[in-house]
Design a binder for these strands. Structure first.
Lengths: 338, 338
DNA sequence: CTGTTAGCGCATTCAG
DNA sequence: CTGAATGCGCTAACAG
């Protein structure tokens, strides 16, 4: 019995006004709860609006008023990565509380695509952007018509914008310290490319922890490649085949952890056990065949923090200096079952 | 040295036209590659546009032309669930190939929120909606101003729209058959609420496979609750404590599988081993302490299929009957390590 | 308190 | 091939 189930040319404010014998302005004012309109009139208008199922055209409204679109663009490399999808969840939570929505853009880790996606989102009138950059050149994110931009997981290079970071250095250092405290001296590092901020920071955490312990850095124990579990597995296998293999492995992200786990799984049962610690928590870490120590943090919180930075900057008219929020990490020990 | 790094009132077509000494219409035509304009003029215009960094206002364009917004709304319960984030990835892939973007809406499994989110997305002018429904009442998705809607993971109830389904029944039946083929007669089922389509279909697969094998359904071996790993663990524990406990467990989704795994992990090593099979694949299934059989399928494909249904319907002006696409499943055996 | 005029940025329609 | 008028749906800025 719903009245609006066919495809009439969509009601306009004039239609509503005409049916009521008032001017469109009256409808407009009633709808926006603007004061300066009689209470009786307002009720009459709202009743008619409800009865007709009229919905105002948001784009026409924005065009005329020049107001915000209440739209935030999220640019990530790959939403299938739980890190990014959880970030998206946090971002959306805060956006909704501000009446805004999130528009998605995936880059597939391609900087050229990132440029296009950002341009498209800007053209579509987003009020702000949260970007997990694909490359290290952030120049194209500067001077975006005063559009607030927040970088996630990477500090801005060459531009002055806000960012939300994870404590990559501290987390990795803590994990490495833990391995050292357990008596390990030969610790293999499965890392990310040093061209990535995350990659160099996590490596630095490893290096500093070793230095603190008076352990010399041995290049044979360091591998820095793309975070692909297959490559990580091969790198781990190669390290473990050295004459004096590492007694522990430290991995720089969850892909590397998975690779290391697979390499360790394939070893003979009588071989010396190898300890494992890594950045990023893993679902089912409590179900693995060996104990695992992880650097844990909440990606949802990154999204929330980014959204807050965005809306705070939007709220203030005076220019603010760029801010930097760092999300803390905690070290979590997952014992092996049994 | 980029020219557009401050906050001028944003260029309009008139500005470009004025600088060129032509009318705005000439700029408009050049920009849209419309024929009926001299090649020389077009080049001049495009050069000026590029030099000035002018970008047309998409919303004004849509308002005037009444054309599509090239925006698709995606409504899910929780993007942190990999099922939904992978669906989003597939949806976006196809959308981008059509020049469209995805706008996000999360419902948190609350039907009332779903209504609000859908209404908001419609108000914002999406061209179509992909919805993973939170409830079983889909009435509010009907008669949306002729907006195409595609349901994912659930068939439409009471409305005639397209949908993309997973072969819930066949997948679960196959998994149960496999357990039967391995000699199991007492198979416990950790299911979802039967009010969910997915819940009842997966239960039906279980029931049919048992019937085929001449095994009577035993209520003590059936639990149907929300897909929460904690509840699933308790349910599994209770079943395994029965006088004649099941020798195998069949789980209806990955949350239940995780719960079952934890229940099985906690058993004494000398207890009778229990086989496990479940719907949804799990990362690191190859790293668990016991073999696991899963019903696997590609959530990305669901998103792609939904997008295709949407754009195909958009393309055809004549009314089409509702279509239904079913994504196939495969049974995958993950042996235990060692 | 309400209505009128004008125009957001662009594209359709019709002149030239 | 180009330009001028007109209006998409809505709301500022002014009347009354």
């Amino acid at each position: 019995m719903s009245a609006h189930s066919d495809s009439e040319p969509a009601l306009t404010m004039r239609d509503v006004a005409a049916r009521l014998g008032v001017s469109p302005m009256t409808v407009s004012r009633a709808l926006r709860g603007q004061r300066g309109i009689g209470e009786a009139t307002r009720q009459r208008v709202l009743a008619e609006v409800a009865a007709l199922g009229y919905r105002p055209n948001k784009r026409a409204r924005e065009l005329r008023s020049g107001g915000p679109s209440e739209l935030i663009g999220l640019v990530v490399t790959n939403l299938a990565n739980p890190f990014y999808s959880q970030l998206a969840v946090g971002l959306e939570q805060i956006c909704v509380s501000y009446g805004a929505r999130v528009m998605l853009g995936s880059t597939g880790e391609d900087p050229a695509t990132e440029r296009d996606v950002v341009a498209d989102l800007v053209d579509r009138g987003v009020d702000g952007l949260v970007v997990v950059p694909a490359g290290h050149d952030h120049g194209h994110l500067g001077g975006l018509r005063d559009l607030p931009v927040v970088l996630a997981a990477s500090p801005p290079m060459g531009i002055d914008v806000d960012c939300v970071l994870v404590d990559d250095f501290g987390g990795t250092r803590d994990a490495c310290r833990r391995l050292v405290a357990r008596g390990h001296r030969r610790i293999g590092f499965l890392g990310l490319p040093p061209s990535l901020w995350t990659g160099s920071e996590r490596f630095r955490g490893y290096a500093v922890a070793l230095e603190e312990a008076g352990i010399a850095l041995d290049e044979r124990y360091v591998s820095q490649h793309r975070g692909d579990s297959g490559l990580a597995k091969e790198a781990a296998r190669a390290m473990l085949a050295l004459p004096d293999p590492p007694t522990a492995l430290l991995t720089a992200n969850n892909r590397n952890t998975v690779g290391a786990l697979r390499a360790l799984r394939d070893r003979a049962p009588d071989e010396e056990p190898v300890s494992l610690a890594g950045f990023d928590d893993i679902e089912l870490a409590d179900m693995l065949h060996l104990p695992l120590t992880v650097v844990s943090y909440d990606p949802v919180e990154i999204g929330r923090a980014a959204a807050k930075l965005l809306f705070e900057r939007q709220a203030s008219t005076v220019p603010q200096p760029p801010r930097r929020v760092t999300i803390a990490t905690t070290l979590v020990d997952h014992p092996a079952p049994r």
